[in-house]
C-alpha cells in the first residue's frame, strides 16, 4: 500500500476511461479504446522502466 506503483493503476484506469470517452460517444467503443490505451500505456511505462533499470545496472 505504501508503494508508489500501487497508486499508478487507479490513475491509469481513470486516464484511459476519460481519454476513451473523449474519442467516442457510444459505450462499447469507449471501453474498447480505453482498454487499448491502457495496455499501450502499461507497455510504454514497462519499456521505460526496463531502460532505466538497465542504465542503473551500469552505474
Amino acid at each position: 500500500m505504501d508503494s508508489y506503483y500501487f497508486y499508478l493503476f487507479p490513475l491509469l484506469v481513470s486516464v484511459s476511461l476519460a481519454y476513451g470517452a473523449t474519442r467516442h460517444e457510444l459505450m462499447k467503443p469507449i471501453l474498447e479504446h480505453s482498454f487499448r490505451f491502457g495496455m499501450w500505456f502499461i507497455g510504454f511505462v514497462a519499456v521505460i522502466y526496463l531502460i532505466i533499470l538497465m542504465i542503473s545496472w551500469s552505474l
Binding site: 487507479p10 490513475l11 484506469v13 481513470s14 486516464v15 476511461l17 476519460a18 470517452a21 460517444e25 459505450m27 469507449i30
Partner: peptide, 18 residues
C-alpha cells in the same frame, strides 16, 4: 449525454477528490 457524464464525473472528479 448521461453515460459520459457519469464517466467523466467518476473518473475525473473522483481522481481529483481521491
Amino acid at each position: 449525454r448521461f453515460a459520459k457524464s457519469v464517466i467523466f464525473f467518476v473518473c475525473i472528479f473522483g481522481t481529483y477528490c481521491f
